[in-house]
Design a binder for these strands. Sequence first.
RNA 1: GGCCCGUUCGUCUAGGGGUUAGGACGCAGGAUUUUCAUUCCUGUAACACGGGUUCGAAUCCCGUACGGGCUACCA
Length: 509
Amino acid sequence: MENIRLRFAPSPTGALHIGGIRTALYNYLLAKQLGGTFILRIEDTDQNRFVPGAEAYIIDALRWCGLIPDEGVEFGGEYGPYRQSERKAIYRQYAEALIASGHAYYAFDTPEELEERRTADENFKYDYNSRKTLRNGLTIKTEAVEELLAKNEPYVIRIKVPENEIVRIHDLVRGEVQFQSNELDDKVMLKSDGMPTYHMANIVDDHLMKITHVIRGEEWLPSTAHHVLLYRFLGWESTMPKFAHLPLILKPTGQGKLSKRDGSRLGIPVFPLSWNGETAEESFVGFREFGFDPRAVVNFLAFLGWNPGTEQEMFSMEELIQAFSIEKIGKSGARFDFEKAKWFNQQYLIASDNAYLANLVRPIIEKKGHNPAETFLQAFCGMMKERVVVLTDFWENGHYFFEDFTEYDDKTIGKKWNTDSTGLFTRLLDALESISNYDPVAIQAGVEGFISENGLKFGDIFPILRVGLTGTVKGPGVFDMMALWGKTEVKRRLERSFALFNQQIAKQV
RNA sequence: GGCCCGUUCGUCUAGGGGUUAGGACGCAGGAUUUUCAUUCCUGUAACACGGGUUCGAAUCCCGUACGGGCUACCA
């Protein structure tokens, strides 16, 4: 039985957006399902686009999502190095082997010369036809080529695409796709700086690392024909990996595929983690910082372009590993729907136990300068979890648990609070004081008793009690909160608030 | 422009020759509730278009339209 090996191979050119994470996820799921190995390879062959910190970001992001590589940069393994820049020498020998077998050639055309050809003919392609008129090993005599090489003349190595052939690729998502070889250009394999292009490095590494399945974005479908040709020319066709090209993730609004800018444009995260670029324009908030639980992000992403064919929507990573299948990957682009992402998050938060939540919420509360006791925090999380969508809502909607509110619902108070209220509520406070067993049930009984004894209605008491306690008309059950806070704190809060309310009506008069 | 891929409610999607075309998000209404939320119920809304093939097409085939990707010494 073959050893299943899949890889996620991003370029460290900046923060990795959610589309990249989804690609990693699908690779991870299939690897785990088949008992295989999930590998992280860094494709840093473009020295111009290299961004410091991007590699660390990618690893942090994968860790946060729970997509831990078994092998790769920072994770070890027997097929290293896993950074392509450290494998530079390897690629050259294969590029030269391609030349030796007549499947590639040296090309001496300068970027400027090619640019000129492109401006002259906008359909210009370096292909089976035009290569006859360019400066390369096919048009220059062998000795002259040797001479140029000896003189250190810059050159690239290009693949020699055969004429009049049909290149067939079998894609696990799309079935058979054909390309007419005359449509294919002679892509550069080795750049003049000695680095391979993606195409070369990818095929060599996938072969050397014994990759069995390539799951990647649809943007690679057109160049897969070149990749198949390379496997053939290098004699590796029999062990060529299976390909699966994923539908792209589309912008939430408008047209085209999701891009980095869509996040800031719409005020929503499109990255797993925040990224601090050189400028504000290049900086992005992540799902993590926005208040997402990684389980929700993973669940949401899994469903962007795939679904199990059942009506189950909530899937743990383990369940995804069980249920995942390439056959069920969709073919058309999936629009990024932030509303759905939030819904997933809310579902996870509601279903989480209080201790788990307290762990995630604590840093948020501490950042605001509060250091609550663990039991208090957990009780808080328990009361709030059905009222939040993202983790930051715990503070947004429940800050009054930790600090005195400064703004309150003055509309409600304006309607309900009058000059007689202080007297009434002071008596309520006294009634509250006399409750011996200060738990939610007893408090409720006390308040209800007070209401009926005084011939009042719920509406006369509750809005003021709630706003007095929390500043807002929304929130957990008042009696639950009161029990958590205790008699003294309840008294303190209410007395403070009554003073505030009296100031408000004083101003109105 | 050329090549390649795609097209079921607004969005994510199930289904795949005969279905009341199913679910989820969103939205609207209702029930429960001390508020808000949760939960539950109900509603809203789709097979891009045109031709075939067939007794019958959303489903198969061909076109068209529309959308997307690629077209670098970027990945």
